Deep mutational scan, measured.
Amino acid sequence: MSIQHFRVALIPFFAAFCLPVFAHPETLVKVKDAEDQLGARVGYIELDLNSGKILESFRPEERFPMMSTFKVLLCGAVLSRVDAGQEQLGRRIHYSQNDLVEYSPVTEKHLTDGMTVRELCSAAITMSDNTAANLLLTTIGGPKELTAFLHNMGDHVTRLDRWEPELNEAIPNDERDTTMPAAMATTLRKLLTGELLTLASRQQLIDWMEADKVAGPLLRSALPAGWFIADKSGASERGSRGIIAALGPDGKPSRIVVIYTTGSQATMDERNRQIAEIGASLIKHW
């Protein structure tokens, strides 16, 4: 067993022997300050990975656009099909120029040879490739089937209704393509630590998230040396920005953090900075 597999395998073990964890309200002060700075709603939740206990939250049951954070859930659904023998990570999918949508930095380079399901999930999570996400959605039956998968997991909140890039419209009070911080955190925890996926698939999912290449300005920018993070960011219209992450010190994840914001007129750089500052406060008061 590799060191990485050993780390994931021990998560349920540590759950039975973990020391108590305590929240620090200073982080919530920073979350509220971020709302003021951005002139927008901010949703935040911090969940103990082992016990599932909510350590701190702000607007945990308000809806926010999922943006590209849905791609982790999508690849979780794909992996569940792999575990059930209904899909193969090595299966090659061919597509055409007509399938390409905006922001497809990986898939646009493989029009001649296609990409495997594994490569598409990697592109969707690590590079947030939109065409990769659409091709993967097709393999499971579309957005409604992803919503059904989540319902079967016990998540009756999170929903995907449209494809890339339309799902990023982020219209106020529109429940399409939205989640709540509490629902997303719970669902992510189930995918990473529960029995829904095999150990190999849980490890694959967290490996893809750990290799995320487009979330550098967010929580990763505040991460001390030696800390672990596996994450997925998202951005969409109407000043929306978000990130879902499993992180912790000593090279292993111990908490789930979900941050969403929407309705801001601030620049992308400012939205990134506010999320990074929330992360810095979280780490300082860990």
Rank of each mutant, 00 (worst) to 15 (best):
L160T: 06
G242Q: 00
G76V: 05
K53Y: 10
I3L: 13
L135V: 11
A222M: 08
L19W: 14
R238Y: 12
G279D: 06
M127V: 14
P224D: 02
R202M: 07
A211W: 03
H156N: 13
R92C: 07
I45V: 15
D161V: 02
F149T: 06
V29E: 15
I140A: 02
G194M: 07
A170P: 01
G242D: 02
R7A: 13
Q4H: 12
L167G: 02
P60M: 13
S201T: 07
F14A: 13
N173T: 10
L146G: 01
S221N: 09
I244H: 00
L79G: 00
R118K: 12
I206L: 14
I3T: 11
V72C: 02
D231Y: 02
E169W: 08
T267I: 05
L28R: 05
G194T: 14
S254M: 13
V214A: 09
L247H: 00
R92D: 05
R92E: 07
R176H: 02
W286E: 00
R159S: 05
P253I: 06
Q97S: 15
H110L: 08
K30Q: 08
Q88R: 12
T178K: 01
H94V: 14
T158A: 02
F14V: 11
T198V: 06
R238S: 14
L196Y: 15
P224K: 02
H285S: 07
L150V: 08
I229V: 04
T126G: 10
T139M: 10
K53A: 15
A182C: 13
I11R: 04
K252Q: 12
P65R: 03
M268Y: 08
S221A: 09
T147D: 05
A133G: 10
I206K: 10
G216K: 07
Q265L: 12
T198L: 08
G226N: 06
Y103A: 07
A215K: 03
L247S: 06
L73E: 00
T267S: 04
P253M: 15
N173K: 10
S122M: 15
S2I: 14
D250C: 14
D212G: 04
T69S: 02
A170D: 14
L73V: 11
A170R: 07
R220F: 01
M127Q: 11
A182R: 15
N98R: 13
A211R: 14
A222E: 12
Q265S: 14
L146V: 08
T112V: 13
G251E: 07
N50D: 13
L167A: 04
E169S: 14
T179Q: 00
E169I: 13
